[in-house]
Design a protein around this nucleic acid. Structure first.
Lengths: 340, 340
DNA sequence: GTATATTCTGAAAGCGTTTTCAGTATAGTA
DNA sequence: TACTATACTGAAAACGCTTTCAGAATATAC
């Protein structure tokens, strides 16, 4: 059945089926009609010989790699991994396969990854987060389709799948306000080698706006900066406490920092939510298992990945898909209490 | 500098450098000595024209894809993602690149993934967990190097990188024993479509043996089964509580289930570690941020991935690497208390 | 019945490399 | 000086497919 020393080529099939190689190729790719009899003969020969097309020859001849490049930022970070999972899911069943590269939030490494993908002649690129200059991306987009997930490209908005970060953060803050909180701290972030990732910045803006709309002026002493990792969440709380400015709630720009904050609070004997309420962002899978379960903004990462894959497939198919914009959904669990 | 419509071929370089295509290839691959002058001329032309070799042509002609297949089980699960990250790291700097496939713990999907990788003519395969029959794997191994991480292959042990699960679980249980616990529950797991993953089974065995060596007979009422996900950890605790058999400690076969268990305990008002002690397995990155921080067995996932990649590279280089066997390291944090 | 489409088909020309083969210089040896 | 290694080099043959081209066979229209 399956012949492992795959030396079976299209020529063998042709010979066996008594047709020309061209005909074999035609039935295999379905690129032109072939007489039913010959078609069958080819199929039979293919099955009998356990033929597998050589993908390099195919790619070389056709100019397509049947591969789409995915440039991510952090293997192992829950939110991004969710997107990757979604991409994998969305590509499943198509002829395309993803090729991953990890940029580790370092522009230089990212650029290298991009080059690598290009060199491997991917047919399209899906960007997951990241900070490659848009100018560079536009160049790439001239050659092959580009889709960005979880990143908003100013100059090519129609190719982006993202969440309305501003609105979602606004909503989260508003919820805290409604629960009677007035002194709400915010843990934002800067990532190394860049001032600030845009979506994180949008969350900060949303937070500030909600405050203002409630007649409160954002207090710089209540805003502290992490790096999206858990540890920075604990540091952030330490910092906040050290500043001495009282607060009754914390809104963290992502769940991981919220977890860190939660631990720091625990260490200080500050109860959540009785003493301090906590809200995160992402709703990564462990948020529901924090103690107490974390109230957070859900980003549908898997879905976003799937949509990105679907859009890419459409683009590759010469269609122009309409990309969805996602709204964050506030998932209310148990980490927020009413402030008396 | 970089010419994006990459129509520059080796012929263009040849023409420009006034040499034959063969010579260009020789300097590019360093496969034979070339007169210094010509070598330079070639390099210059390459730089000027922004030449990038066409990888398909290369692969077709050389028979190598410079790609190594990685068959994983669960994108998005912390431990496995750590391994992937390690593989990526370990391959960095080499000419090889990973091609990922996700088996989702379903043999059928796994097999398809394997076929896919083979069809893409990967030069080697790294298995991450999984349950593909060894017989099939041996066939593959006859053609190309195969390395398994986090899985112990009975018939080809010299190709495996794994942790001594039995010993590690024994050690964890022993620690609980030393802390005065006598009634120690264990959350084990079965994964769908298979009786039991071997390493999880080894952990169960280690737990049982430690008990026996301490003169305690394992009590089936204290052993409960999950599926490695968090939710199953909460169910496990519910089950345990429902059975009415008292216990003062829980050893979970992985961290995720430990997190679930921790939440269930919280819900019931049972304190950790004052009322019940908790030990996990894996030391995934969030373990240190559980409340209280989780005592657990560390599996050096990133390192394991790196070692796998290094071993693969060695194999590809005709060497026969000696694979390390990892010992689990008990990381003592704050989820275990002495039992009076 | 002829004229015109339409459907099939094989030959052959790529696709862009690597690698073998057969030299031609050049250096080293006696 | 003649002779043999050695260092370089280019022509040309793969590698295994896709696709164009043009012709043959068949169907459709008048």
């Amino acid at each position: 059945m399956s012949n492992n020393d795959n030396k079976v080529t299209i020529l063998d099939i042709a010979k066996r089926a008594n047709v020309s190689p061209s005909t074999v190729s035609r039935v295999l790719r379905n690129s032109a009609s072939v007489a039913p009899g010959k078609r069958e003969a080819v199929m039979k020969a293919v099955a009998e010989l356990g033929y597998r097309p050589n993908i390099f020859a195919q790619s070389l001849a056709s100019g397509q790699s049947m591969t789409i490049g995915v440039l991510t930022q952090n293997f192992g970070s829950p939110f991004y991994d969710g997107i990757l999972e979604g991409i994998l899911l969305g590509l499943d069943g198509s002829e395309y396969w993803p090729l991953f590269a990890d940029g580790r939030w370092q522009t230089e490494i990212e650029l290298r990854g991009l080059d690598f993908l290009l060199q491997r002649r991917v047919d399209g690129i899906i960007l997951v987060g990241g900070q490659i200059p848009e100018e560079r991306l536009r160049k790439v987009a001239k050659e092959i389709p580009v889709i960005a997930v979880a990143r908003e490209l100013k100059t090519m908005p129609e190719n982006c799948i993202y969440l309305k970060n501003f609105e979602a953060a606004y909503q989260a803050t508003q919820y805290l306000l409604e629960m009677g909180h007035r002194d709400i701290a915010h843990i934002t972030a800067t990532v190394p080698y860049l001032d600030s990732v845009d979506d994180i910045l949008q969350r900060l803006r949303g937070y500030e706006q909600a405050l203002r709309d409630a007649g409160l002026e954002p207090d710089p002493r209540l805003i502290v900066e992490g790096n999206l990792q858990q540890q920075s969440g604990v540091l952030a709380v330490e910092m906040l406490l050290a500043r001495g400015r009282p607060f009754s709630a914390i809104f963290a720009a992502n769940d991981q920092m919220a977890f860190g904050a939660r631990l720091a609070l625990y260490r200080r004997g500050i109860r959540v939510p009785e003493d301090v309420s906590l809200v995160g962002f992402d709703d990564e899978s462990s948020a529901a298992y924090m103690v107490p379960p974390l109230t957070t903004v859900r980003q549908p990462s898997i879905l976003m990945g799937q949509e990105a894959a679907k859009a890419m497939l459409a683009l590759l198919n010469e269609q122009s898909p309409k990309l969805p914009v996602f709204e964050g959904e506030l998932v209310i669990r148990e980490s927020v209490a009413r402030q008396r």
